[in-house]
Design a protein around this nucleic acid. Structure first.
Length: 597
RNA sequence: GCCUCGGUAGCUCAGUUGGAUAGAGCAACGGCCUUCUAAGCCGUAGGUCAUGGGUUCGAAUCCCGUCCGGGGUACCA
């Protein structure tokens, strides 16, 4: 049992004994003592002063006396204003370190047969353009969230819904037909997703010209947008596709295959993967069927132009279109079908969608619609809503070319990493392959940590002019600390030093040693909170604090050079345990750590 | 217009259900490599927590108003 739980129970007991009052556990506010005060754990006594009818100081002292007498681990205490600072015995901290060091998977709760099954949808790209920085945030958050949920004892199915059909694909297809001149990834040497993306941009350029021309001829803006030949062409392709026109389907397959080949490369570079991939082209019909069923059952209604709608005014929302007047599906239709499929395929206890906050309304509506259609899981969907990545000039727009491309960004980061490593000359003796692997590990560590350390809910800014840092609160800083620890441990082994991981309870702890042990014990707490809050950032911030403390310790306390064998052993055990915690924690972020750098 | 999210150091971000003197990194300045990796460590400077009220022992945190910004809002995804 953790010291916090023991104390919590004893504090309630103390109040009962001293003041004859029953208190709710929620009133017991225990926190780690701030560094500037003496002590390890602090109780906020303000909530109890009205029970004691004494000053905060006197109340704190009475509770402190009681705890000191009744809890072995409480050595002494001091009172500062309404704060009762408890000093916990070193023996307790030693026992905690022993247990952390003994557990291979310290901080991790393994899933069992009885565990909940969580399905997490993330990535979910459109197949009309390559992945950009916004997708990177999605993928990294999604992957990390899955690792964190697993570490909290859940079974997780990582899923990806590929938006492989729809008007956006048809735009790229139309542009390719009109202006493609038979270009392929093979004959141009351009990565497939980028090639298709080029045509998406081309479409938009031509479309805009046509609109301008039509407006010049006296058309209204709305009419021009509807009647532009490009748009009509794309719409026609969408209709042909839904009608399974052979030539259209063939072109669609070909271009999507180019994109998939490109995506595979990007996913692999990012280090993300999926257990089950759904394709919208396969699920949208289920959605259409469900909408038609809803229409037949009177849940939805049809307008004169034969478009199908949901009336959400009882829920305080608007009307929502579910099938266009030409009968084709919209985004919502597809998501209904996909949800139904998934719950048929898996015994899902919890469904999580990792999708940007621009779609908050969409998921609010999806939840309601599924519920209206009689799916009991409708209300339980969880939209993991994350903020946008913005550039200094504002939002990224693929069609306007103001995007930071995922492949380019990763390649640039690797290049910076390589140069830095070579300048520092840390990898001498490595083969070129080993070195290249390390450059990549550091580059991705920098990128992933940069993205994940920010609260997912908030928008974040990326300035391409100032490349991502490798110093300070960064992935490489953490990786570097890990490499240092490994280096010390290697040297210990080389010198024939054997670790004794069963530390005696009488082991003495200095300030930094104690602080590090306390930090390590917070890891399971951080893992749980990250799981509860769906926040990789909590893990990132935790590791950073741990690593910062380790570096201070490393600087102040000699490890191998220490002459006292017991102290040397203690420090090695601490270093090893911190290293293990860093590695486990970084794994939860999808970041690897190097043996050397 | 309506809905919704946000505003913390020059910049990028932390700040558990309200708790002690609001913290990091970057940038700036000054120290520390004959000792386990200087991608490090130590120090200096930098704040009206957008703003005005309120709630209370206590507010960056909760409530109301105002200003500024992002996102959404019936045939894009």
């Amino acid at each position: 049992m953790s010291i916090e739980l023991i104390l919590s129970a004893k504090i309630i007991e103390a109040i009962a004994q001293c003041y004859n009052q029953q208190v709710e556990p929620s009133l017991v506010q225990i926190q780690n003592t701030r560094k500037e005060f003496e002590g390890d754990i602090t109780l906020v006594v303000f909530p109890f002063v009205r029970m004691s009818k004494k000053s905060p100081e006197a109340t704190a002292a009475e509770i402190g006396d009681y705890l000191q007498q009744h809890v072995n681990e409480v050595e002494k205490y001091n009172v500062v204003k309404g704060f009762l600072n408890l000093v916990i015995s070193p023996a307790y901290w030693v026992s905690v370190l022993n247990s952390a060091s003994a557990h291979a998977n310290f901080g991790i709760t393994e899933a069992t047969e009885a565990s909940k099954l969580v399905m997490v949808e993330y990535s979910s790209p459109n197949t009309n353009k390559p992945l950009h920085l916004g997708h990177i945030r999605n993928n990294l958050l999604g992957f990390s969230l899955c690792e964190i949920l697993k570490a909290n004892g859940n079974k997780v199915v990582k899923t990806n819904i590929v938006n492989d059909r729809g008007i956006h694909i048809c735009k790229s297809m139309y542009a390719w037909k009109m202006w493609g001149n038979g270009q392929t990834p093979e004959n141009t040497g351009i990565k497939g997703d980028h090639l298709v993306g080029n045509f998406y941009v081309k479409f938009d350029q031509e479309y805009k010209k046509e609109i301008a021309a039509l407006i010049g001829q006296g058309e209204t803006k709305e009419n021009a947008e509807q009647n532009a030949p490009s748009m009509q062409g794309a719409r026609e392709l969408l209709l042909k596709w839904e009608a399974k026109d052979a030539e259209t389907v063939q072109l669609w397959k070909t271009m999507n295959d180019w994109v998939y080949a490109g995506f595979d490369v990007t996913y692999k570079a990012m280090g993300v993967d999926f257990d089950k991939i759904y394709y919208e082209s396969e699920t949208y019909l289920y959605g259409k069927n469900e909408v038609l069923r809803g229409l037949a059952e009177g849940v939805f209604y049809q307008k004169d132009d034969s478009s199908v709608w949901a009336d959400l005014t009882p829920e305080g929302l608007d009307q929502k279109i579910l099938l266009r007047s030409d009968g084709t599906s919209v985004y919502m239709t597809q998501d209904i079908g996909t949800a139904k499929e998934r719950f048929q395929d898996y015994p899902i206890d919890k469904m999580v969608y990792v999708v940007g906050n621009e779609q908050n309304y969409h998921f609010q509506v999806l939840s309601i619609l599924l519920d209206k259609l009689g799916f009991e899981f409708g209300k339980g969907l969880h939209h993991f809503s994350y903020g946008m990545v913005e550039l200094p000039q504002g939002k990224m727009k693929s069609r306007e070319g103001t995007v930071v491309d995922a492949d380019d960004l990763m390649a640039e980061m690797i290049e910076v990493s390589r140069k830095t490593s070579e300048e520092l000359g840390k990898l001498e003796g490595y083969t070129p392959e080993q070195a290249a692997e390390t450059y990549k590990m550091i580059a991705l560590g920098a990128l992933k940590y940069f993205i994940l350390k920010v609260d997912p809910k908030k928008n974040m800014l990326f300035n391409p002019e100032e490349s991502i840092d490798f110093n300070g609160n960064t992935g490489p800083f953490i990786q570097y600390t890990y490499a240092r620890i490994r280096s010390v441990l290697r040297k210990a082994t080389d010198r024939g030093i054997e670790l004794n991981r069963e530390l005696a309870s009488s082991t003495e702890l200095s300030g930094k040693e104690l602080q590090l042990i306390k930090s390590v014990t917070q890891f399971p707490v951080a893992v749980k909170e990250a799981g509860d809050m769906y926040s990789p950032a909590l893990i990132a911030n935790y590791i950073y604090e741990l690593v910062k403390e380790f570096n201070q310790f490393y600087h102040e306390c000699p490890i191998l050079v220490e002459e006292n064998v017991e102290t040397r052993n203690l420090r090695l055990v601490i270093a090893e345990t911190v290293g293990k915690t860093i590695k486990t924690g970084m794994k939860l972020l999808g970041i690897d750590v190097p043996e050397r750098m």
